[in-house]
Design a protein around this nucleic acid. Structure first.
Lengths: 283, 283
DNA sequence: CGTCATCCATGCCCCCAACGTATCGGTCCG
DNA sequence: CGGACCGATACGTTGGGGGCATGGATGACG
């Protein structure tokens, strides 16, 4: 009755994304009839119609939309399972920590020192990523990460708060708003604000897409954008950029996050180090 | 290279749980050699040893432990996918709400009325469960639930807070501690406290296992247990049971929770109703 | 110390199901 | 009306998953 295989889900996802059996079959490296049959069998087994086939194209039904979302979750979980298992099997594993360059609120050196003091600590591999940190933890490419709340989507992850900072706005020094000592969100409403690729839900920005902090500050310096950044980032001076406090911007919390359900002792030890260091730093 | 099928994961989980190929094969309804081959192929594909076979028994390797946890996540996700897809396909679906009897903090009637006022609201099916509510949401048996923080493990779920209540302790009226007007956790330290099957991590209780509130109050009335309950539960009188405030017990927050990644408009509408009602009730 | 029991792996065979090729039926377009 | 396009169907082939029988290793036991 039940017995859905990941192969069937992979096939269905391909069709659901292409909305075209031929192209999907190409992408999967199989012939179109095999794909048709597999999807039909999946529909029969579930007792549900997933696609409305017109002879010109295909559209997802409501149930198909649901299954597309669920299947992606399953396939991510399968990928995470293989990656994590392989890594656990590799001799004397490493702990992969993902973070955004400069996104450690200055805590990283202390955390690494503290964790490394544990005699059976693993080697910590640093993995830098701008826009995919949460996804990298979810899918097993990283074991643990430094993320920011509420900028990152933490669903599916467990997290401990490390540090909360007010946000300041970076402006070109000759920007008209730089004349004021304090700015409010209302002042910035019309300004182009760059956005990161890390698509947090509901944060539509109107400015250019940036890939790293240097690029962002460059844009700010030439007056093409204004950007909300954290206090700690503002301690790094940049030619032509000035910072002004924004009291009503929601503060940013740096968190250490890991995959929910990770029972790894190593991850727990690293998190404990991070929390301890953050507590020590704030006192 | 990659291509792990759910069947292989099901087989591996059976072996990992039984630590015995023969029994696992029985449980799966297949013969032992087929199971051996499938697990071996899985190990070869992952490039990792999952089990240490002694000729007397089998033990999990570290990688095997990891895969066991990951595989359970995958299989839960597959089950959830099929259930949710089937439900979405069933004509004009229902919204399944799971809660503990009496665990609604008195909000349920208002929430149902408010949600039902939406012209395209679905029929809400109430599903009562004591110890598995979070799991039922995770695996798709329910769409949304009323849970309690920190008693329930909310990992893998999204939640909105509805209502926070202090906790009180239920005592037999002739219990020695009932003489005091206010009790503290220290006073209760030696008393047998019943526990629910809902295994929140790290809450080891020393009392009997109870399955419902009536049973719990019965145990309290006969002096076999004392129990921390919420204020709202304490409004229901029970023969021979008295309640005393416990100011230092952590308060209980009633939350409405749903599966992370549910993009369902219906779930969102229900959550909005719940939040709205809770806000109205507390003002 | 030899025998037996237990447990997992392997060899052999069968058969199902997943695949590919060819084709059909329906729809849109020129 | 013919051709192009798209998904479903027919049919033959084959790889692999499964069962049965057996092998090889190890611990138990008399």
């Amino acid at each position: 009755m039940d017995d859905v295989e990941t192969r069937e889900l992979r096939y269905f996802v391909a069709v659901a994304e292409e909305l075209h059996f031929g192209r999907a079959a190409d992408r999967l490296g199989i012939a179109q009839p095999a794909l048709s049959r597999t999807v039909l069998r999946l529909e029969r087994r579930l007792g549900v119609s997933l696609l409305e086939r017109t002879s010109r194209s295909a559209r997802l039904t409501v149930a198909g939309e649901v299954l597309l979302g669920e299947a992606r979750i399953v396939l991510d979980a399968v990928g995470a399972a293989t990656r994590r298992t392989r890594r656990a099997g590799a001799a004397r594993g490493r702990l992969v920590l993902v973070l955004k360059p400069g996104g450690d609120a200055g805590l990283l050196p202390r955390i690494l020192a503290d964790y490394g003091a544990d005699p059976d600590a693993l080697e910590v591999e640093l993995l830098f990523s701008i826009g995919e940190r949460a996804a990298m933890i979810r899918d097993g490419r990283a074991d643990v990460g430094l993320l920011h709340h509420p900028q990152n989507d933490l669903s599916g992850l467990d997290a401990e708060q490390l540090h909360t900072e007010e946000r300041v706005v970076a402006l070109a020094e000759d920007h008209p708003l730089a004349a004021k000592d304090v700015l409010y969100l209302a002042d910035l409403a019309g300004e182009p604000q760059p956005h990161w690729p890390e698509a947090a839900p509901g944060t539509a920005a109107n400015g250019p897409l940036v890939q790293d902090v240097g690029q962002l500050l460059q844009l700010v310096a030439v007056g093409r954008a204004v950007a909300l950044v954290t206090e700690s980032a503002a301690r790094r001076p940049f030619q032509g950029v000035v910072y002004r406090p924004v009291p009503d911007a929601p503060p940013t919390t740096t968190v250490v996050a890991w995959s929910s359900g990770s029972r790894s002792r190593q991850v727990a030890a690293f998190v404990a180090s991070a929390v301890r260091c953050a507590a020590a730093a704030s006192s």
